[in-house]
Amino acid sequence: MKLRYEFAIMDMGGEYAAVPVGKDATEFHGMLKLNAVSADILAQLKEDTTPEKVHAYLRGKYPESTDDEIGANLVKFLNQLYREGLLQI
């Protein structure tokens, strides 16, 4: 799985803005407002990857969270990206 577009991601002061860029990005006129974890996930999806790899990355970065918490947040965010046509499976 991989993002359909390139994204410019910026920490706007605790919350993150993600804006699609590139020639094809004109198809998507919106932007994403993300928390730090979602911004991390989005950054991982710039390259072709798997849910398992992203999960493992998040486990390393957020050791205080349980597997289930990380998994639930990851699935929720991936589903959101897929529904909005931003994720290629």
Binding site: M10, D11, G14, V19, V21, M31
Partner: peptide, 28 residues
Amino acid sequence: DKVFPLVIAQSYRPSGEAEMMQTLRLIK
């Protein structure tokens, strides 16, 4: 943090990633 999505939506959106990062930096 409540208004930056509107500010981004109302700002010129360049096509290149470096230019968009610069736009976001200026909005910040």
